[in-house]
Each structure stands twice: as structure tokens, then as C-alpha cells.
Amino acid sequence: MTAITMKNSFEQDRVNLRPKKFLMWLFIITSFMLFAALTSGFIVYTAGDPSRGIKMLLPSVFNYSSVAIILSSITMHLAYKSAKELKFSSQRLYLLLTLALGVIFFVLQVSAWKSFIASGVYFVNPNASQSFLYVLTGTHLLHIVGGLAVLINAYRGSVKNIVQYRNLFKMELASIFWHFLDILWIYLYVFLLLNQ
């Protein structure tokens, strides 16, 4: 009977990864909404009074960090492609490169904060538009930490030689999320450039 049928269909639910991948897309929508809210908050706040606004030039570190994260998107894509073509060693290599670029991005962002402080733009600030700089980049960095965790997870799976369909699944999750973080940063950077 039925025990077998049911077991089979549980097994199918477990193996059927589409609903789980879909969860990742939905999560991306929630974090997109979070940033939409923060940037709208920025606009509403800044428009409230002429004394508000970023009122400085963004540090050039942001250009470097943007290059780093765009490169990491490329290596991420290469890693995913290698996984699909069963070239596991190059998959791991590209994953490591992506991770490294992610860490570089993180460090550069933190150094951008240092240059904010050096030019007297503090987090605690009567002009909250400037505090928003920290909030926007900081929230994005938190997501980067999450993204790095997803990457490490995919890397560990690959090292442990898990079944290919799981490996691909992890790689897919990682690449969806990582590309999203890349696009998100570009959105934030352009947004800030337009408002500086």
C-alpha cells in the first residue's frame, strides 16, 4: 500500500527543489522592500528641509568596492557554470575567488566609514541624511555577511562531494543571492550618487 506510495511522494517533495528555490526569490523580494523603505525614508526625510542632505562627496573607496563586487558577480557566474559542466575543481576555485572578493568588498566598505568619520560625517548627526549613509551601507553589509555564509555553505557542499543535484541547488541559491547583492549595491550607490 500506501506506506510506499506516501514515502515515495514525500521523497519527491524532498527532492523537488523548486518550491525551495522559490523561497529564495521571495526572500529577495522582502529584502528589496526593506531597501525600498529605507531609501524612500531617506527621500522623505531629506526633502523635508533644505538643511538636510548628504552634503559631501562620496569617498572614492566606493568605486573600488563597486569594482570588487561586480568582479565577484562574474566569478560567481563562472563558478556556477563550472558546476553545471561538472568541472568541480574550477567550481571551487571560482567560489573561493568570489568569497575573497566579497571579503575585500566588506573591508572596503568599512574603510569608507572610516573616511566618513575622517571628514566629520558621523553616525550620530543632527543631519540624519548623513546617518542614513551608515544605515544603508550597514544594512547592505549585513546582507553581505549572509551572502558569504551562503557561499561558504555551497563551498562546503562541493568539498564534501555531495550529490550533483544538491550541489547545483546550493550553487543556484548562492548565485541568485549573490547577484542580487551586487545589483542591490549598484542601486544604492547610484541612489547615493544622485543625492550627494
Binding site: 521571495l26 526593506l34 550620530v124 548627526n125
Partner: peptide, 25 residues
Amino acid sequence: GVLSFPVLVAGVVLLIFDRSFGTSF
């Protein structure tokens, strides 16, 4: 829920900064 709760998160996070870090959003 998916579209609106994140916005509350944004509002609440800024409130937490105002309460605990001394910002003035």
C-alpha cells in the same frame, strides 16, 4: 505581509538607533 513587514523593519531599526545610539532620525 511580504511587501509590508520589511517596511516596518526599516522604521523600527531607525527607532532603535534613535533610542540606543543617539541618532536623530
